[in-house]
Design a protein around this nucleic acid. Sequence first.
DNA 1: ATAACTGCAAACGTTTTGCCAGCAT
DNA 2: ATGCTGGCAAAACGTTTGCAGTTAT
Lengths: 134, 134
Amino acid sequence: MQSNKKLRMTCQRRVILEELQKVHSHPTVDEIYEMVRKRLPRISLGTVYRNLEILTKLGILQKLEKTGTHKRFDSRLDDHSHIRCVRCGMLQDLDTEPRIEMPEALNQITNFEVTGYCLEYIGICSSCSEAQKE
Amino acid sequence: MQSNKKLRMTCQRRVILEELQKVHSHPTVDEIYEMVRKRLPRISLGTVYRNLEILTKLGILQKLEKTGTHKRFDSRLDDHSHIRCVRCGMLQDLDTEPRIEMPEALNQITNFEVTGYCLEYIGICSSCSEAQKE
DNA sequence: ATAACTGCAAACGTTTTGCCAGCAT
DNA sequence: ATGCTGGCAAAACGTTTGCAGTTAT
């Protein structure tokens, strides 16, 4: 799984990582870019994207929103869970509903009006893991 | 919450809805466009987007991937949950981890190699609900 | 010398928008 | 007549990529 490329902890890479470790929010790439630019004014957005991707592949960062970039719509209206293949992006309904702690306590804890949830299991679907064996 | 516009159930709107109700997968907009185009060859992609959005606002459809379009990265590596404000998009960690049914049974049920999950509660954060009152 | 890396700008794919004509009320 | 709507094309947006020059080994 590990790449065989040699990795250099360049200044840009280190600063991106440090800035991301500094905050507990989950900044978007643009926000990260702005944070990093205060220390490295000449860094480019492309470099930020590239390094975030590399650091994620190395397991040093985690990408949130594993969910794809395409919008998807559902005629089923209740909260229900999905499972997504990280390889091919396939998304399917989960029929057995996992038990989710009811959000009532959450309202207090988080100070949100919690209106629903969005649970996706992530994994590798059978056809992708078949394909891998070839 | 309901808009005060008059809604016409036009042909395009109806076909989009019907096609979406026909399938149990969660097609992307592009896929929906192709499905609808078989019945209405002259429909435009913009119309599909507009109507999906309208039908969602009316509560007839549900938008999956409520999660934003921006990539976000996290230096925390464990699976942990988040809560997102649907108004302002703010995303924050959830400290109290809800109990998620362990994915072991899931492997069998879904035929996936389940590797993790992604749980987001959705709601309205306190500053947004304050702002609303004004 | 080689390979990894950066900045820049262009390209890309998805989604949104402005405009005008058409249609229902 | 009014106002919601659709088709089209252009714009906008976030992200990725190609290239040429730089840096570390």
